[in-house]
Write a protein that binds this DNA or RNA. Structure first.
Lengths: 157, 157
DNA sequence: TCCTCCTTTGTATTATTATACATTATGTAT
DNA sequence: ATACATAATGTATAATAATACAAAGGAGGA
């Protein structure tokens, strides 16, 4: 019974803009599912439904797909998990990270002591790597790429 | 101001597992943002945060991943309302903002994804935009000017 | 059968969130 | 500066959602 009801719930939220659990309750009733708000609350938790904003600016239930990742590991892992992109400009490398991870990631780089890296400066979600000269930038980018593609493993050095 | 607070909220929810608005309220208080639950509820709606299940099975707030158009509009607004001046130096643009809004404004720029902008790095009331080369700076300044004079409207792009 | 252990649901309540309305800030133009 | 408009926030409360606890309903085994 539970699963068919939950199935019905999924069907309903994909069909209608359902703003509240009470509204869902009524729609379920029309399909002969006689339950209480409490049960619906539990179903919603189990189905991991979320309340989002519909285009009209009202809240509505929708299927969620959020996955969580703890960002508290060794620095290669930090690197892999917090850096979203990087790009060079002249003798600088601008690295973007997840919000709030600029400092942690920059420290990871510092710790790696890469030759020709003169220093780093970190903001909230970005940090800057200053390289001694433009020509030494490509090999560093290569190292980054190796890390991300896992060609450089956690215990390689 | 509203935007630095909302920025703080984003930072907080990415750092902690925040289960309720009251919990957020307390954390904000620790960062000297004195507001009420009502305001937080509104911020959450505006930021389109959602309540998801954390791995532990508890509810927690997280950023939702729906529609970017309102987000862009939000950032244009932030740009207009928090930036006080800007000036270029070589391939950099130094932008001054209202106190406490450096991060929020810089994130706005990041989100706008302007070509030739390699990245930003933010302080409290200033942020730096790194452009790939000096010659690409003027058109960007032009865009900024367009935004401020409202020649670039919310739904132009 | 009756007992025991689970699972599911309801009841009643608490906890949490959203919002109507009032108030205070922040412009903007005259 | 004054008056008017607009946006931001607080207050108070209504609306909504989560859950502790109790009460079924099985399923399996002696």
């Amino acid at each position: 019974m539970r699963y068919s009801r939950q199935n019905k719930i999924l069907e309903l939220i994909s069909t209608y803009d359902i703003e509240t659990q009470d509204m869902l309750l009524k729609l379920l009733k029309e399909s002969d599912f006689e339950v209480t708000q409490a049960t619906i609350s539990r179903d919603i938790k189990e189905l991991q439904l979320i309340k989002t904003l519909s285009p009209s600016g009202k809240y509505k239930y929708a299927v969620g797909n959020y996955s969580d990742k703890p960002v508290t590991e060794r620095f290669l892992k930090i690197f892999r998990e917090t850096i979203t992109s990087y790009e060079s400009a002249e003798n600088l490398i601008v690295v973007k990270t997840l919000s709030g991870c600029g400092n942690a990631a920059a420290e990871a780089i510092d710790t790696m002591v890469i030759t020709h890296v003169v220093g780093t400066i970190a903001g909230d979600n970005t940090f800057l790597i200053i390289v001694d000269s433009k020509s030494n930038v490509p090999p560093i980018l290569e190292i980054f790429n190796d890390i991300i593609t896992m060609r450089l493993k956690n215990n390689d050095r």
